[in-house]
Every structure is written in structure tokens, then in C-alpha cells.
Computed example of a mutant assay.
Amino acid sequence: MPISPNQGSTGGGTAVTITGTQLSGTTAVRFGNKLATGVTNVSPTEVTAVSPSGSGSVGVTVTTPGGTSNPVPFYYVGAPFKQTISPTGGSTAGGDTVTINGTGLSSATNVAFGANNAAPTVVSDSQLTVVAPAGAAGPVGVTVTTAGGVNNGLSYTYVADPTVTTLTPASGPTSGGTAVTIAGTSLTTTDSVTFGGTPAPFTVLSDTSVSAVTPPGAAGAVDVVVTNDAGSDTATGAFTYIAGPGI
């Protein structure tokens, strides 16, 4: 007499389907010594019911006018508990692999990033990984669904790829040291600015502005690359190094 699913929340409320023979006229379904609710005799070979609250492993029995069946096991699972999520943000395009650590994760079936769902890969009862779906820029709640229920409380922030529109000034000496204001979009999480491939010290002023100090460089135009949590943008030949006079 199989039961599906064979596990559910300790709080009860799991809809189960029991299949077997001679199930007509079912009068009761018990999980251990507790009566199930919502018992429906679908056919002589199928009964549905809603599990009561419980814990551990219990035997499920069906009672008909002909007697009580042999028990089949049902396992109560506690609600998941999430402790950490890494990384805590990524591209609005999705595709980043996210690791969630906690407890009670072995039966995870879904991870929701806001309104968008993704199928997890269970590593162990204390860890799962999931590929973040696409989402709109900004923070969203992360919800894990398991046989034991759902748990939320973690946050994931979607970040749009940065864009670079203008540099002011757009030129400076090869010795470096020029304070440059970079204008663009999605610059809040900027974690790198390079001039011709050389990292530059920078300060985020706003989501549309970053201040950087040019490193030394060879004379000529160089690419300026701004990178954030989602990706990078290259302003081709956007800054020109000017050699000093020689006598």
C-alpha cells in the first residue's frame, strides 16, 4: 500500500495519496494514532487524506468495514532553517550559482527569488546550490521549500551590469594622479576600475558616479573598464595619457 508523498511537515497539512486494494468504504486514515482529515475515497484502489501534525516516522493505516490495513511509513520533516547565502547578489540576467547553508534542506524542491522559482541541487541536509533566475534590479527575499515547509528571511540583490557614459576629464599626464569622474549607471556595487588594464583607486559617489585616480600609463588612448557584482563595461579609448614635454 504505497503512500505519496511519504514525507511532510511536522505541522501537518500534507495532502497524501494512498493506493492499494479493497479501499472502498474507507472510514478512517491514521498517521500513527492520529486521525487524518480530508479523507476522500477516490476509488476502490485510491484514498486521499491530509496528514495531522506529528514527528519522526509513523505508520499510516486505512480502516474500512473489512478491517484495518497494514501500516506504511510516513516521515515527518521539520521546516528548513537557512543560515547563510553566498553570494548575496548577482546579475539581473541570472545564471549565478548560489549556495545556501542551513538545516533541514535535504528535501528541498524549490527556491524562490522573489516571484521567480528555481530548482535546487541538494548537496546535503545542511547545504544546497541553486542557479539564480533572472530578476529585476534590487533586493528580493529568498524562500526555500522542503517537505517540511517553507522558510524565508534571506535576501538576494539583483544588480544590473554597469554602463560608462562619460569621463571628466578625459585626459591627463602619463605620470598618473588625475582625479577622474566616471558617469554611468549601476555603479553602486563597483568593485574595480582599470585604466589600460591597470587598477585604479576609486570611490563610489552614487549609482551614477564614481571618482577614480589614474595610475601611471603610456602615452595614448586606453580603455577604461568598470566592474560591479553583475559584470563589466568597457569604455574603449575613453582616457588619453599625455606625455610631458622634454627638453
Rank of each mutant, 00 (worst) to 15 (best):
T240H: 00
A170D: 09
V47K: 01
A134R: 06
P173T: 10
T181A: 13
I242V: 15
F239I: 02
G244I: 14
G149F: 11
S4V: 15
S91L: 07
V131Y: 03
T27E: 13
M1C: 07
P73C: 09
T174L: 05
S106V: 08
N117F: 13
A238C: 12
D207W: 08
S53C: 02
G89M: 00
E46W: 12
D161V: 14
G95V: 09
S155N: 07
A137N: 09
T240D: 13
L105G: 13
L23Y: 15
P133Q: 12
P199C: 10
G231Y: 08
A115Q: 12
P139A: 09
S155H: 03
V123L: 07
G25K: 06
K34M: 11
K82G: 09
G237S: 10
N70F: 11
G8M: 06
T84P: 08
A238V: 13
I3F: 13
T121Y: 03
G67E: 11
A183M: 00
V159G: 09
N70D: 15
V42W: 04
P87S: 06
D207K: 10
P245E: 07
S106E: 08
T198I: 05
S206L: 08
G38N: 15
T97M: 05
G114Q: 14
Q127L: 03
T19Y: 07
G177M: 01
D191F: 01
G231A: 00
G95C: 00
V77C: 05
A115Y: 03
S53W: 04
G95R: 01
T129E: 07
G12F: 08
T10Q: 09
V39N: 12
D191G: 08
A79F: 02
V144L: 06
T178S: 06
T190W: 02
T214V: 00
G135D: 04
V47W: 02
A49S: 13
T208S: 09
T10M: 04
T185H: 05
G196L: 02
T234I: 14
T240Q: 08
T178Y: 04
N33K: 02
S171E: 15
G172M: 03
E46N: 12
F74V: 02
S175Q: 11
V50A: 11
A200W: 01
G246E: 10
Y75E: 04
V39S: 11
D125F: 00
G102P: 11
S53R: 14
G196T: 01
S211M: 05
D191Y: 00
A137P: 02
F74T: 07
T181E: 04
A235M: 13
A115D: 14
G104M: 14
F31C: 04
A235E: 13
K82A: 11
D161P: 06
S55Y: 06
